[in-house]
């Protein structure tokens, strides 16, 4: 048997397995690119306001965008001022969300957006958004946050209603956080 041949081949196979380990990690950015292209995980796109303003407006139809708010393990109140708005594709839409820190502590939160149906999320872009940024709220602070968005004219005809959902999470490791207001999330048991 050719010992160097064996070692050579074994070395290559070890390299292959290390490469595949790296590939596992490479799947993370690949996945994000793939999601941007296909809307796989319902995350939305971002466009500059110049691009958005130059978009052609489709006057033939109206799309309803409903707003949904969620909070997880964070002592804030989080609401959309309007429950839904109607926009024409290509037209700039706007929504205002109100966040109130109900606790007596400084709390940092971060909002994650999600659009349903997921297939439509590629056609939904924001020019201005508070999402993904860390938001520091002083005790008792109330703040209005705006989202400006545009629905692409290429949105397939079959989608006439979209939902834009935000979930505010507490940034991990900033001490204990909790609680939301009873009026908003009272359970009827």
């Amino acid at each position: 048997m050719d010992k160097s041949g064996v070692n050579n081949l074994a070395g290559k196979l070890v390299m292959l397995s290390l490469t595949m380990f790296g590939f596992g990690y490479a799947l993370v950015p690949l996945y994000n690119v793939f999601c941007d292209l296909t809307g796989l995980n319902g995350k939305t796109g971002v466009v500059s306001s110049e691009v958005a303003e130059k978009m052609e407006v489709d006057m033939t139809r109206v799309v309803t965008v409903a707003f949904d708010t969620n909070i997880r393990e964070i002592p804030w109140e989080f609401e959309a001022l309007e429950k839904k708005v109607s926009v024409r594709p290509g037209e700039m839409g706007e929504a205002t969300f109100v966040v109130t820190n109900k606790s007596d502590r400084k709390v940092i939160g971060r909002a994650i957006p999600s659009v349903a149906p997921t297939q439509a999320s590629v056609f939904f872009s924001k020019t201005e958004c508070f999402c993904f940024d860390e938001q520091l709220m002083e005790p008792g602070e109330r703040r209005e946050m705006k989202v400006r968005f545009v629905v692409d004219v290429d949105l397939p005809q079959r989608y006439s209603a979209l939902t834009l959902s935000y979930t505010f999470f507490a940034i991990p490791n900033q001490g204990k956080v909790a609680v939301e207001d009873k009026e908003l999330f009272r359970s009827r048991i």
């Binding site: 380990f21 590939f23 993370v28 997880r72 971060r110 979930t167 507490a170 991990p172 490791n173």
Partner: peptide
Amino acid sequence: PVLAGAVTMLLTDKFFGTSFFIAA
């Protein structure tokens, strides 16, 4: 090796502050 990568990410998510799979 891809599985090894995935479980390593679980480990760092839990103990070393990464957020591969944490929505927050």
